[in-house]
Design a protein around this nucleic acid. Structure first.
Lengths: 342, 342
DNA sequence: GTTAGCACTCAACAGTACCGAGTGCTAATG
DNA sequence: CATTAGCACTCGGTACTGTTGAGTGCTAAC
């Protein structure tokens, strides 16, 4: 599709533009060591590349900047993986050297570290609860009318939910319910909870508690109230540092998008297997039309279920971002294995 | 200090400037209905006000804008409380009509609602644990080497912390510890926890557990690990909507400040009793030199301990902000009373 | 004490000229 | 025939100029 020389020139332009955010002229390209053509030759090639849609100009006599198609080609064919600095590698490895106990902390820290290292905004979508199993249930009455249900999973996740106690439920019944639940539900994967409750717990409740209706109601409220979100975001304001968002209005619309979980969640939940780069309009979102989103799934046990994503300008340091995500997800999977050995 | 007429003019200028963010000229002031002086008179008064430091100009022939001293005088002497709209009152009251169970949720929602209503950034510093008492302690082992400690307080607050299990502690000991803790510590105010443990629990541990050293270590890790922060922030990006932050660099430095809890916390924790307005440089922080921070303490039981704050430009809708905070804190105290009745 | 009138100031805007970086095209070159 | 030197051209950026209009400060009259 592209000649050797065109690829080379495209690569130089993208690499250079990523660094400087300035249109690249033919003279500057010719100056590079590994380029042995005159500016005129390069200009001819650049004209061809522009005609083919890989480059564009900001005005008729400006240098060239990569188009989205140009970035796409760069990402698919030209990009060379960057060597991470020792510092970067160290930071990530240290993060995973700490004993991982609570999954949430790992997620939150991951988001912080990656946004720190990349200077882009980082999203981490925690693993869905497919495989995690219930470890323990606790119900703590707070006063006459309300109580808190606490669920602990074998991934160290603690979820708690407050709910109103049904009128006139008896204290003894609450205890019985908790006992029944722990007996029947410990070790059950969270997604089967409801099913197991229907098949095994309901009968017992009817049998052993004096206020069955209320107990069942309690259970519903306590276990199936709306689940807390498991998206961690870090470095939102990094995006302000990028010169493409010197225009405050672009920054505003992007912030609006980032603040609304409804808009973020579906993008992350697409769960495209492995590493996926989505450039500019490929994102199908107005606010992100100048941004690139790199998503990577990570595996947790057997099924892959979590997603981590970096959001930056289309002029993103692709190779560094990819290398970092790569190292991160390898470490992550590795740590999970150790974790599950226990 | 200021004549009646000067006060009137200052008030009009501040009110007007808060709405428009544009310097106010003498002609525009004279046009207002309740002003019966000619522009020339007003100009003279404005010159005096400027000399006294209440006003300033953006350039030698511009209209006047309030100085920080001007805002200060306005806030202290001229501001009339604004009538909140029915919608605003309704929103706040509905928020408090919902059964309050978890304090955290109340805090988080409060931050969201106030930032929504004011379009400023809202900080809520949750109440310190002075009065809250321990309701229950639970320790859930996750695997051989780690466990999660869960504390529930009578304010519905759930705190959990993961910690490494000391090597070779016996499962039976963990249960014994939990039993001892619950027996001795239930109802103890959190701030006395450590003291009570020293005086009443340590001995028992020595007596009843076979691995005392480890048990004590466990206890330390579980209960006195670093506490989660209790600052809730909402509407950070609202600040971008203010024209004074069209300059992206100002926005950047403010964002940097807001993202660092180390910088926010001390300001909120000053806990100045009641409502306190701190304008521009009064904040003693470079990044906030163009901002006003309104803080209000709210009472929780006997001692006042929580703080809520609004951060906006110095050109803030003071009267609306104050009225909203006022209504909010009244509702908050009122709800707490009901809460404690139980 | 108040106000009309006027000279003055300055930001904002439009117009002009110029510079320099960069292009596209053409014709010369190896 | 691919490559390159040369040159005319384009256009953003900057500096300078003049104009307009909103607004002030001052003075003199009411």
């Amino acid at each position: 599709m592209l000649t050797e020389r065109q690829s080379l020139i495209l690569q130089v332009i993208v690499d250079e533009f990523i660094q400087t955010a300035q249109p690249i002229g033919s003279r500057n390209i010719a100056k590079q060591e590994h380029i042995s053509y005159s500016p005129a030759t390069i200009r001819n090639e650049m004209a061809d590349l522009e005609e083919a849609g890989f480059l564009s100009k900001t005005h008729s006599s400006s240098g060239r900047i990569p188009s989205e198609k140009g970035y796409r080609f760069y990402v698919d064919h030209l990009m060379s993986p960057s060597q991470l600095s020792k510092q970067e590698i160290k930071t990530i490895k240290e993060h995973f050297n700490d004993r991982m106990i609570e999954l949430e902390k790992v997620m939150r820290n991951s988001a912080n570290i990656l946004s720190e290292l990349t200077k882009y905004t980082t999203f981490v979508l925690g693993p869905e609860a497919y495989e995690t199993k219930l470890k323990q249930i606790q119900i703590v009455p707070i006063n006459q009318q309300s109580a808190i249900a606490i669920l602990v999973t074998d991934s160290g996740h603690v979820e708690h939910r407050s709910f109103a106690l049904p009128g006139h439920i008896e204290q003894g019944d609450v205890e019985k319910i908790v006992n029944i639940l722990n007996e029947k539900l410990t070790g059950v994967p969270l997604i089967y909870l409801e099913r197991v409750i229907q098949s095994e717990v309901v009968d017992l409740l009817q049998q052993y508690t004096t206020s069955y209706e209320q107990s069942y109601e309690l259970l519903q409220d306590a276990l199936f109230g709306k689940q807390a979100s498991n998206i961690y975001v870090s470095g939102k304001s990094n995006i302000l540092m990028q010169p493409e968002f010197n225009d405050i209005n672009k920054a505003r619309s992007l912030f609006n998008m980032m603040e609304s979980e409804d808009q973020i969640a579906p993008i992350l939940k697409m769960n495209q297997d492995g590493l996926h780069i989505s450039i500019g309009q490929e994102n199908n979102m107005e606010a992100m039309s100048q941004c690139t989103l790199i998503t990577a799934t990570y595996s947790f046990g057997e099924k892959q279920v979590g997603t981590i994503a970096l959001l930056g300008p289309t002029r993103m340091e692709y190779s560094k971002a990819v290398s970092l995500l790569d190292l991160w997800s390898k470490q992550m999977s590795h740590s999970f294995q150790n974790w599950y050995k226990d």
